[in-house]
Design a protein around this nucleic acid. Structure first.
Lengths: 139, 139
DNA sequence: TATTATGTAACTATTATAGTTACTGAAAGG
DNA sequence: CCTTTCAGTAACTATAATAGTTACATAATA
């Protein structure tokens, strides 16, 4: 897994924005609670904004807030916004064409990967940001 | 996803071993069809052997073969044998303790990650190595 | 005893990503 | 205006994971 921590960061940021009830939060403040650099947060917010999950405002007093209510945002949407579409990696070099397995394996593997990715999306789609916050409170 | 290609490699190796019907395959031969280095294959075979999915023999004429019939091996077992148990990564640095979200998010996130991992395992568990080979043939 | 294979340690190269610095441009308020 | 405070962004560094490689020990076979 050259998997990144962007999903964890993104859920954290979205949870803070949800708790802030529409008040604008600066990247500096968000970076302090996540414990990272403001630029890392800003890059994340750009992806979240492209998916319409947050809205941002520039200039003094600016920052980010949720793009819509936390009840209408699922973790699957957050995941899709900030991570690569496939969890798995295929062969870096093309498998051997002379081998009856190697010459045909890639599309079959891709179908397996696609099913696994959909399973993750289904599972993450079952939890909204609001539900996540509820779990945080009654942990 | 600092995700690796070990799963793809492992499924490929297992498929070749299944096609070889119990004949021993050398790491050099396996490396040629996967298109990588024999040592990479040998490291993979060590993990697969630890999970009892393959058996190996040393010395001249040695190599690897399946540890049990391909109908009794699922892709979930192969996955578990060669990849890290969690697909996701949490915060590299500990989140802020002063923040009501940061101080409680990690265990909640871990539960979400665990559910997603189980969803992947369930999905991969639905396909056996024999079923995978069947798909390869009628692709 | 020569050959062929696994097992394994140690190293290099590559790649991904978090983190950092530095700057531009936008909004707000004195 | 002009200063401050913020997002946006490019360019860079540091770090970590992993594939690939080299080299060698050990085991089995003929």
């Amino acid at each position: 897994m050259a998997e990144s921590c962007r999903f964890a960061f993104a859920v954290h940021v979205m949870a803070v924005l949800a708790a802030c009830q529409g008040d604008l939060c600066s990247s500096t403040m968000l970076a302090r609670t996540v414990n990272t650099h403001p630029v890392v947060i800003r890059r994340l917010l750009l992806d979240l904004r492209a998916a319409r999950l947050v809205a941002t405002e520039r200039g003094a007093g600016g920052g980010a807030r949720l793009g819509r209510p936390a009840t209408g945002i699922t973790l699957a949407q957050i995941y899709a916004a900030v991570e690569a579409p496939c969890l798995f990696r295929t062969h870096p070099g093309q498998p051997a064409k002379f081998c009856p397995i190697g010459c045909r394996i890639v599309p079959v593997l891709d179908r397996v990967f696609a099913r696994a990715n959909r399973a993750v999306a289904r599972e993450l789609g079952r939890l909204t940001l609001a539900g996540f916050l509820r779990q945080l409170r009654h942990d």
